[in-house]
Amino acid sequence: MPSLRIALHQAPAGVPRSVEDSLAALDETARTAAARGAGLLVTPELSLTGYALGEDVAERAEPADGPSARALSRIAAAHGIAVVYGYPERDPGSGQLYNSAALVAADGAPLAGYRKTHLYGGWESRHFTPGERLVVQAELAGVRAGLLVCYDVEFPEAVRAHALAGTELLIVPTALMRPYDIVAQTLLPARAWESQLYVAYANRAGCEGEFDFAGLSALAAPDGSVPVRAGRHEALLIADVDTGLLRASRERNGYLTDRRPELYTV
Rank of each mutant, 00 (worst) to 15 (best):
T265G: 11
A239R: 00
L46G: 09
A58H: 14
D107Q: 11
Q196D: 12
L103H: 10
V149F: 06
G50V: 05
L111N: 04
Y180K: 03
E168P: 08
V15D: 15
V228N: 02
L169E: 05
Y198E: 10
L263H: 12
H127P: 08
V183L: 15
A52F: 10
A101D: 08
P130H: 02
D21R: 00
R133Q: 11
N99P: 07
T32A: 13
R204V: 12
H162V: 07
F211N: 10
T186P: 01
R259L: 11
I75P: 02
T186K: 04
V228G: 01
V84C: 03
H162F: 07
T43V: 05
R252Q: 07
S68C: 13
E194Y: 07
R232M: 05
A200S: 00
T117I: 15
E168W: 00
F213A: 10
I75G: 00
R126H: 13
A214D: 15
P92R: 02
A13E: 13
V149C: 02
A161P: 13
L256W: 06
A11E: 15
R160I: 13
A161L: 13
Y198H: 08
V136H: 05
T186G: 06
G66L: 05
A106P: 08
P189T: 11
L103E: 14
Y120R: 12
A58T: 14
G50K: 02
S217N: 00
A141D: 11
E234V: 06
E168H: 01
C207M: 12
E59Y: 07
L246W: 11
A158D: 15
A205Y: 03
A220E: 10
R90K: 08
D65Q: 14
G93K: 05
A161W: 10
G80N: 06
G54R: 00
V135E: 08
N203P: 14
Y98K: 03
A101L: 08
A230G: 13
T32K: 08
N99H: 11
R204Y: 05
E234I: 05
C150D: 10
Y85N: 01
G37P: 03
L140R: 01
E262I: 07
L46Q: 04
V104S: 08
Y255D: 14
A34N: 06
S125H: 04
G122H: 11
V172P: 01
P130L: 03
E208P: 04
L53I: 00
Y98L: 12
A202N: 06
Y120T: 15
S22G: 15
Y180R: 04
L26P: 09
P2C: 04
A38D: 03
V183R: 15
A230K: 00
T117L: 11
P44V: 02
E62V: 05
P92G: 00
C207D: 15
L4K: 01
W193I: 14
A163W: 10
V143Q: 07
